Amino acid sequence: MVGEAGGLARAAVVGTGLIGGSVLLRLRDAGLDVAGWDPQPAVRRRLRDRGVAVSDTVEQAVAGRDVVFVCGPLPTLPAMLARVAAATDDRCVLTDVGSTKAEVATAATAQGLGRRFVPGHPMAGADRAGLGAAGADLLDGAAWVLCPGPTGMDAFRRLTALLVDVFHARVVPMSAPEHDAAAALASHVPHVLAGALAGTVQRSALRDAVLALAAGSFADGTRVAGGPPERTANMLLANRDRVLVELTAVGAFLDEVAAALRAGDADALTGRLAEARAARATLCARGFTAHRREFPAGADHAGELAYLRELGAAGGHLTGCRVTAGAVGYTAHLPATPPLG
Rank of each mutant, 00 (worst) to 15 (best):
V2T: 15
A5S: 15
L8M: 11
G15H: 02
G17L: 06
D29Y: 04
A30P: 04
Q40F: 14
Q40L: 15
R44G: 12
L47A: 06
Q60R: 13
G64M: 03
F69Q: 09
P73R: 12
P78E: 11
M80N: 05
A85Y: 00
V93I: 11
T95F: 04
V97F: 04
G98E: 08
A102D: 14
A102W: 09
V104Y: 14
A105I: 11
T109S: 15
A110V: 08
G114L: 02
R128A: 13
A136N: 06
L139W: 01
A142F: 01
A143N: 15
M153V: 09
M153S: 11
R158Q: 10
R158Y: 15
V164Y: 00
H168R: 14
A169F: 05
E178Y: 00
H179C: 03
A183H: 03
A186V: 13
S204P: 02
L206T: 14
R207I: 10
D208W: 04
A209R: 05
A215G: 05
A215Y: 02
G216L: 13
D220W: 08
A225P: 08
E230P: 01
A238I: 05
R240Y: 13
E246Q: 12
L247D: 11
D255Q: 10
A258R: 15
A259K: 12
A260G: 06
G264H: 06
D265C: 07
L269P: 04
G271D: 09
A279I: 13
R280K: 10
A281D: 14
R286C: 10
A290E: 08
H291W: 10
E294S: 12
G298H: 09
L305P: 02
A306M: 07
A306G: 06
L308I: 04
A314Y: 01
G316W: 00
H317Q: 07
T324G: 04
A325W: 08
G326F: 11
A327V: 14
V328Q: 03
T331Q: 12
T331S: 12
P338V: 09
